[in-house]
Amino acid sequence: MPNNENLSPFIAEFNGVSLRYNKGPEILKDINFSLSPGSFHFMTGESGAGKTSLLSLLYLHLEPTKGRVRLLGQAIDTMSRSTKAQVRRQIGVVFQDYHLLNHLNAFDNVALPLRLAGEKETEIKKHVSELLAWVGLEKQIKSYPEELSGGEQQRIAIARAVIHKPTLLLADEPTGNVDDAMAKRLMYLFLELNKLGTTVVVATHNVGLVKNFHFPQLHLADGHLKIIPAADSYSDITNKLFKREEK
């Protein structure tokens, strides 16, 4: 039974979280934020600002060196390994380097989360085929990752992350290798999921994307997190960049 003290109404809640690798410097410093159910955030910041590390904390790949992380209502430091696995099943992740399995074709890569969840093969076939068609890869269904372009691999990675309609979707540069039209199409896919209740965090360098879709930003700089509200998020960032250049 979960401890009531650990329960949280948020999908994710970070309190005083810091992270360092081994004895290196702190990558993330005193991070405090929460993600409400059904929210949509961009995660922005320069390269090396700690976006991937923060995402790693969100999908339970890393533990904080200080502070407390709660995911799907439970503190991760008190979760059993079995509970952590259950929580991970409710999180979809689009990795920056795709993390596709080269010995599986496009269909089987996308089907992986459903197979781990014990779905019936008939259901898997239906859903995977539909989704691959939606991301424009119906002809590559039997192709192996090595036979596909970077953009195609990225779309497979996205399809795998969303196939099981996760509670929390984390995407690390999901549009980095696709053209603007496909980037927009993929963003609409994320929005559709968001409308259905999925909480979404998209880490991106794509200023255009942030400009077109007005969502609040989790902005990382020097290991610190700043939450930039939706309305002025884009102008704030550009102002900052402009001021820095002036200096």
Partner: peptide, 16 residues
């Protein structure tokens, strides 16, 4: 290890 790491991240139980 890359396969195990991924399958683990996708929520496979240790026992599985």
């Amino acid at each position: 290890e890359h396969i195990l790491s991924l399958v683990h991240m996708l929520g496979a139980q240790d026992l599985y």
